[in-house]
Simulated assay, not measured.
Amino acid sequence: MAMHKAVATVAIRAKLGLIDAQTVPPTGREVRVHVEWTASTPLDLHQNDGGLLVKHPQILGDGIAGKVVEVGPEAKNFVVGDKVFGFAFRENKQKAYQDYATVPETTLGKLPSGFTFQEAVTLPNNTVTIFHSVTKDLGLPLAWPRPTTKNPHADTPILIWGGSSSCGQYALQILSAWGYKNLLATASARHHDYLKSIGARHTFDYRDKDVAQQILKVAPHVPYVLDCIASQQNSLAIIAQVAQGGTRVAALLPVIVRDATDDEAPEYSMDTQGAVKWADGVEARGVRTHFYEEDAFFKEHLQTTVVPELLATGIVKPNKQRIVEGATLLERAQAAMDLLRRKDVSGERLVWRVSDLKLE
């Protein structure tokens, strides 16, 4: 079988490694993509430094942007040469940090005209996360096509903790587009104006000691909270001061008990309900985006139809990108990992070119 280059985590907290991976021909409804760009995520750091759900060596990355080079016999959405972007994660062959990824065609959408791979690759994993977390964990509707009638939850307070994160930005844009108008967001003060421009009604600086009291002054009861940070002390402990009986909290797993640093290994928990002391009647759920395909409509249409149309029609704007440079695939991947560990990123995505192969 043909081989290609891939970047993998080879041991906990070790430098990333360059390995030879099998170039897997597509079967059924799969397609093989030449991976040109990706966007790093905190999960990459959790897997490398914390060994989260990893069996070494594991190829990293779940955001793919590139060109289709081969289609399976039952594929119906794409042909060779199509420019695509998407979110795939289940097996090594589907991962992003490699020359070629072989993925189900339902995990891809066509790149709309007028957009670059660098812009588009900021969308798929986190827009999918928003649709899944809002509908599955918060229990709020996001019907497709978008309803034309007034949203009955238009004035219901919804708190987005970590509004300037990639997920936070997409949450604000998507919820606003679906008619949720009473959106509260936390972020550094320098991001407040932008967050208001994409749907936040009120913004709060998460570093203020009385931020919980500020939120409650604006909204005495907040029934829905989406925690895009999921830090035991820096988000959940403060959200617990806001949440009251009947509040539903959805936190993007894992719960970070201790952050990774250059000197210390991280510590994680998957127990959102037990992470902090909640008021009676608060339901705290951990978001597991990788189960979004349990929804039959989402599995078939979310990435193939919905996400590309959100981008093409301007319902969502891509995250700002910081292009990570490096002479090789491995250098770019390691540089992005180091930036994640140092938390040297805010309000933007770390985006970088993957394959060094030049296809005709």
Rank of each mutant, 00 (worst) to 15 (best):
M1K: 15
A6S: 14
A11T: 02
A11H: 04
A14H: 11
L16W: 05
L18Y: 09
I19Y: 07
D20T: 07
A21V: 11
A21N: 04
T27V: 05
G28C: 05
R32S: 08
W37T: 12
W37S: 08
A39N: 09
L45H: 02
H46M: 03
Q47F: 00
L53K: 13
L53N: 08
V54N: 03
V54T: 09
D62P: 00
G63M: 11
A65S: 14
G66V: 07
G66H: 08
E70P: 10
V80R: 02
G81Q: 04
K83D: 10
K83W: 03
V84Y: 04
G86M: 10
F89V: 00
F89T: 03
R90L: 07
K95A: 13
A96Y: 06
T106I: 05
G109K: 02
P112V: 04
E119P: 08
V128M: 09
F131T: 05
T135K: 06
K136C: 07
D137P: 13
G139A: 00
P141V: 00
P141E: 01
L142A: 11
P145W: 09
P147V: 05
T148F: 01
T148H: 03
N151E: 07
P152A: 00
P152C: 00
D155K: 13
I160P: 04
G163E: 07
G163F: 11
S165A: 10
Q169I: 03
A171R: 06
Q173Y: 06
Q173W: 09
S176E: 01
Y180V: 01
Y180H: 04
K181C: 01
A185I: 05
R190M: 02
D193E: 11
D193L: 02
Y194K: 05
L195M: 02
L195Q: 01
A200S: 06
T203M: 04
Y206M: 01
D208L: 11
Q213F: 06
I215S: 11
P220H: 11
H221C: 05
P223N: 14
Y224M: 04
V225G: 04
L226S: 10
A230M: 05
S231K: 09
S231V: 07
N234F: 11
L236R: 10
L236A: 12
A240L: 13
Q241R: 15
A243Y: 13
P254L: 01
R258M: 02
D259E: 15
D262E: 15
Y268F: 15
S269A: 10
M270D: 12
D271C: 13
G281H: 03
R285L: 10
V287E: 12
V287R: 13
R288M: 15
R288T: 14
T289E: 06
F291L: 12
Y292Q: 02
A296E: 14
F297G: 02
F298I: 01
E300W: 00
Q303I: 08
Q303K: 09
T305V: 13
V306C: 13
L311C: 00
Q321Y: 03
V324F: 10
E325M: 12
L330Y: 09
A335Q: 06
M337D: 01
D338T: 09
R341L: 12
R341N: 07
R342E: 15
R342W: 14
V354Y: 07
S355E: 02
L359R: 04
E360Q: 14
